[in-house]
Computed example of a mutant assay.
Amino acid sequence: MTKVLAVANQKGGVAKTTTVASVGAALAALDRSVLVVDLDPQGCLTFSLGHDPDHLEVSVHEVLLGEAEVVDALVDTEDGVTLLPATIDLAGAEALLLMRPGREYALKRAIATVAEDYDVVLLDCPPSLGVLTLNGLTAADEVVVPLQCETLAHRGVGQLLRTVREVQQITNPGLELLGVIPTLYDSRTTHSRDVLADVADRYELPVLSPPIPRTVRFAEATASGVSVLSGRKNKGSDAYRELADNLVQFWQHSAPLATLEAVG
């Protein structure tokens, strides 16, 4: 069955888009058919995968409003994943959806029309807890939370967890919170470990392994329109490959997701 994984955190700059692009490319390299969905009006995922949002005629905006079919908006990428792109028009979709009944289910209904064509659907939620993120959480089977390993990183995590619980109670009872993905991790410092230990203790969240290291390769990949997995091997691509492999083992064999047991 198709697995739908939302990547969500209302805080910006936590590597949500990098995580979706990199995990998607790593899963494609494992011969999985992958659809990635850009739910951010800024179109960062769309841009980072080699498409200019300003030059797209059909996007997730039209799909959510029922003005176009998903298949009419899909584009290919050099990383082997299929992209449902976003444009700045998506900012207006949020206001329009608010006036519609069943607004939280718009994405779920749309994905259902193409789900059988993909093994995995990855949702890049915007840095907010508005109706677009609610659509992502309602459509997903599971959600992970990228969290940068820096002071005050957990600000807002409690609010996100409340939103997840409300979605579980109202629109998506089957939604499972898999845990935190540590990003921007610097193994040379105890500070990164302290931040993760605080989050794990305070919110009782699993911290998934491996941590994603801080590396300039991510910025270079975004600028070139491909994921960090393209080109030479580096510690960032290695970490995302391991994370993707862990997810596959979890989905296929019900193997426990690897966690950082020694945090703190």
Rank of each mutant, 00 (worst) to 15 (best):
A91G: 04
T133R: 00
T151E: 14
P182M: 07
T189W: 07
D72S: 13
E67M: 12
D52G: 00
H55Q: 15
S59D: 12
K108G: 13
L175Q: 08
D89V: 04
I88G: 12
A73L: 08
P146M: 03
V75Y: 02
I181H: 00
A106M: 12
A86F: 08
T133K: 02
D52H: 01
P101M: 11
Y118C: 03
S187A: 14
Q148G: 01
T138R: 10
V180K: 03
V75W: 01
R103H: 11
A93N: 07
G179T: 03
Q159A: 13
I88M: 15
I111C: 10
R155D: 15
V71A: 15
C149M: 06
V70L: 10
S59Q: 07
E104L: 01
D117N: 13
E78L: 14
V75H: 03
L97R: 11
P182A: 12
A139D: 06
P126M: 07
E116A: 14
H61K: 08
L129D: 05
L122W: 02
E104H: 05
V81H: 04
H191G: 11
L175V: 07
L90H: 10
E166P: 05
L90I: 07
L132T: 05
G179C: 05
A93R: 11
H154R: 14
L64H: 10
D52K: 08
K108R: 14
N172Y: 02
N172G: 05
R162C: 05
L90R: 09
T138D: 06
A139E: 06
T190S: 15
P126S: 09
E176Y: 03
E67L: 13
R188F: 09
S59P: 02
R188A: 10
E116N: 15
R165A: 14
L83A: 00
T171M: 09
L97H: 10
I111M: 12
P146F: 00
Y105A: 15
G174C: 02
L123F: 02
D79V: 01
L147S: 06
D72W: 10
R162T: 12
T77M: 06
A110F: 09
L137H: 02
R155N: 13
R165H: 12
G136P: 04
H51P: 06
A115K: 12
Q168P: 10
